[in-house]
Design a protein around this nucleic acid. Structure first.
Lengths: 206, 206, 206, 206
DNA sequence: AATGAATGAGTGTTCATTCAT
DNA sequence: CATGAATGAACACTCATTCAT
């Protein structure tokens, strides 16, 4: 005999949202721990009150949660980046604040970015996520803006944004592997490297 | 009784070598296109005249080809790096020659480094390959040497080596995506960024 | 939220049980016909309405069905043996009833014991099943008891139990190969052989 | 370059025989250690100076070596059995000598009989070997002879031979598992059990 | 004959996804 | 909507056997 106990009290929409988020959170953990390919849908729902079937009510596929996760991470980081940009008066202080935000973010949500970072192995999954590209564009546009306003010399913008992101990412990883995890020295390292480097960069017509 | 003494220059030995290389090449492509986890052994042998069984005659497992591939790439790049280091008189010219070697190498064998790049998702596979670590150590030791000899300021060595490698890789990738692929501007960009950045780096007691 | 409380008497539960038994039955046949090693999971599910995947929903591995099968056979035979022991007044009548039970059991479920018989090639699989050992111990303890009570002479208990089981099995098998299958003569043969033999056995200090 | 060194000195036939025996010996060990199914042709030739290809020059298949092995074991045991039968004046002394021969044989060549024993798991392989059946017939005919000559009562001959072989086998196994391995008590146990049992057997018209 | 690389069907097992309930 | 059993293609890997040398 199967007894159905309904505790929803009509708050269907809320439950749906909660489930969606529960899946997202579980997926974040699981993908972070085992990587996309190794993680199974069951690994995800196991950390949830839901069933396999329910998973497919919320996301059409494992790929889709992954994309949603990437979106989510990027969506949460972007406003931080914008706020930082709004407050900064010069390129260096912007950069410092941005990098620090990222490293703090890393310390809290290590896994998200481990995954959603471009250049990862599973190129197809990681590099092409729309919101990932958006973050890249965000950084790029801040750099472009800085150039416009004369705060930074005119250089190859794509190379610069890509290079800066690469350094920030790599040093961020190394930082996370050290014990204790010290954000400030890492921030300082990256900022000086970039600022110093940018000053020496060949001017470009881009 | 008949004893066969093979001096390893017969047709058989040649075929074996050719097959070994064919598998390696196919694996390079496949891993490069789909990543280690997603790539299947069948994907690899499909680009070959061989059978599944033959794959296992040459490599004991999918993991082993991967390692062999990383070894192979690193093994071929390391001597270049050493030669360059031997010829250079100062840090900048060393760096420029090294980066140029790498970018030339990239143009020829794009896929190798696509794979062996640290920071990939499957950390276990990519970052810990012995020869990969060796290349990292190679670069690191040249940097350490430069510091010793006063050619570069004393900074956090691991961060520096990691950061430089990350920039070189990232810009290398971007370079490869542009049409036409122009090595010189990319080299110049990276060298200036690093040299300028290094000069501005916070001194460390490491 | 909807909570499902399953009291295990629904259609689903029934189907699950049926499938579990179907697999067990198929496995009994297949292992009986080809032996454990030679039998494939696919051989088993082919005699079923299920898919390969379903097999693994019910049993975690090929080994596990095997163990379940042995357990099942032994579990069903043990109570019979105990009941018989409880009813018998002397050793011979116990033995006769036990052997008859076994031979009747054989007639119905020939294959079970084909498999669980010690002395098979895959020793690890067959001889060490916990329930098999339990049956052996069962018989052994009845013999020990008979000795205690002076109903049987004190002899090497392990040899005796092992020898009796071996004879019962072997004659049981031969009986099953004859047409028609006649239980009574076979029972009589085994009982007389054992009773007569036991009387002639060398006394031991065990 | 491949150099062929021929050391056969024209004694081709000898070498062929030696190889045949080498394979047989290796197979005996390997099958004994891992069982027929688990053993691979490579496992066998690894313990030989030969190549996989050579294996197939001497035996057409893995199955064929197995059969040859069983034949070989049986062929070597049969004369012993016959000699024993020729020397014995009564049934009991025949039986004792036969069992002792078997147990001694066991101690020396444990593996052979582990495998070639009927009732093993891989029924198809083991029970139907022609020479195995021959051993059974051998024992059976001695029993028949004993009956003819009035040394043993007339009983169901097949059951008797089968039962005796089963007991001998089982007790032999148990004996081999004890430390130290003591042949005499085991022989005595089996002989008494059988002799005593036979005396009590129901007479049959077979 | 001997060799050992090549073959490919076959193994146990996994897992994204579907669908009857 | 939720459930979880069912599905079956796919995977890494093995191995008896063949065959060019």
């Amino acid at each position: 005999m199967t007894v159905a106990v309904d505790t929803s009290s009509g708050r269907r929409a809320q439950t749906k949202l909660a489930n969606r988020l529960a899946i997202l959170d579980a997926a974040r953990e699981v993908f972070g721990e085992m990587g996309f390919e190794a993680a199974t849908v069951r690994d995800i729902i196991r950390r949830t009150n839901l069933s396999v079937g329910a998973f497919y009510n919320y996301y059409r596929s494992k790929d889709e949660v992954f994309a949603a996760l990437a979106d989510d991470g990027a969506r949460r980081f972007r406003p931080i980046l914008r706020a930082v940009a709004a407050e900064a008066n010069d390129f260096e202080s912007y950069l410092r604040a941005a990098i620090r935000s990222y490293f703090d973010f890393l310390k809290v949500e290590q896994e998200v970015w481990r995954l959603t970072r471009p250049g990862g192995e599973s190129v197809g999954h990681v590099r092409n996520t729309p919101e990932i590209i958006a973050v890249f564009d965000e950084v790029r546009s801040v750099f472009a803006d800085a150039m416009e306003r004369g705060l930074a010399p005119k250089v190859d913008l794509d190379y610069l944004a890509a290079g800066c992101i690469a350094v920030a990412r790599e040093i961020g990883d190394r930082m996370m592997e050290r014990r204790p995890v010290e954000v400030e020295p890492a921030v300082e390292f990256v900022v000086r490297l970039i600022i110093g480097g940018v000053g020496a960069l060949p001017r470009s017509e881009f």
